[in-house]
Every structure is written in structure tokens, then in C-alpha cells.
């Protein structure tokens, strides 16, 4: 993306065109692009198949929040909605690697 203040750059781009990261499945698609050099369409399809959801749901925070919880892939939390029994980052990433077939 590029440099700039937080509101003007990452927030603006995330709202305008981002995949919502851990709020949805953006990090999973990002992993396939980065690790395997997979183009976006194929990466979205691969993640959707692995999660058992439609491609259109990948950036939907409500749909993905539930799926991530069920598959123990890690998720965001907030003050009144906590998940003390969710996996640690290391455990979540091991689950993600297994799910996506990453080294």
C-alpha cells in the first residue's frame, strides 16, 4: 500500500477496498498470495473452498467471524465480546497452515 497517517491511509484503503483482515478472511487470502504467488481470483476460490463458504462471503465479517470461531482460526474480539477459549496466535496459525496446505 504505502506510507501516510493511520486514518488517511490504512483506514481509508481498508474501508474502500480491503478484505477486512481478521474480521473476515482477508488474512487467509493474503497468505496464499504472498506464500504461493496465487492471483486474487484463485486465492479467493481456494480459501472459500477450504472454509466451505461462498467467495462472496469472504469479506463479510459476520459470516466469517462465526466460521473462524468454529475452525479455530483466530478472530478479533472487543471489550464486551471476548473469546478466552479461542486459540493462541501460534495455534491459530497452525490450523490455518493445515487448512490451506501451507508449508
Amino acid at each position: 500500500m504505502g506510507s501516510g497517517d493511520i486514518f488517511g491511509m490504512p483506514v481509508a484503503h481498508a474501508v474502500a477496498s480491503g478484505m477486512n483482515g481478521l474480521r473476515a478472511a482477508g488474512d487467509l487470502v493474503a497468505r496464499l498470495e504472498m506464500a504461493k504467488g496465487m492471483r486474487l481470483t484463485e486465492a479467493k476460490r481456494t480459501v472459500a473452498d477450504a472454509l466451505g463458504v461462498g467467495v462472496d462471503e469472504l469479506a463479510d465479517p459476520l459470516a466469517m467471524h462465526e466460521v473462524r470461531g468454529e475452525l479455530r482460526l483466530g478472530r478479533v474480539f472487543e471489550a464486551e465480546t471476548t473469546y478466552p477459549h479461542d486459540p493462541s496466535p501460534q495455534e491459530a496459525k497452525a490450523n490455518i497452515r493445515a487448512l490451506l496446505g501451507l508449508a
Binding site: I6, P10, V11, A14, G18, M19, N20, G21, L22, R23, G26, D27, V29, A30, M34, V76, F77
Partner: peptide, 9 residues
């Protein structure tokens, strides 16, 4: 960035 800003990476 992960928890509050919806960063994909």
C-alpha cells in the same frame, strides 16, 4: 493493525 484496523497483512 490486526485487531482494530482490519489489515489483511
Amino acid at each position: 493493525y490486526e485487531q482494530c484496523l482490519a489489515a489483511d497483512s
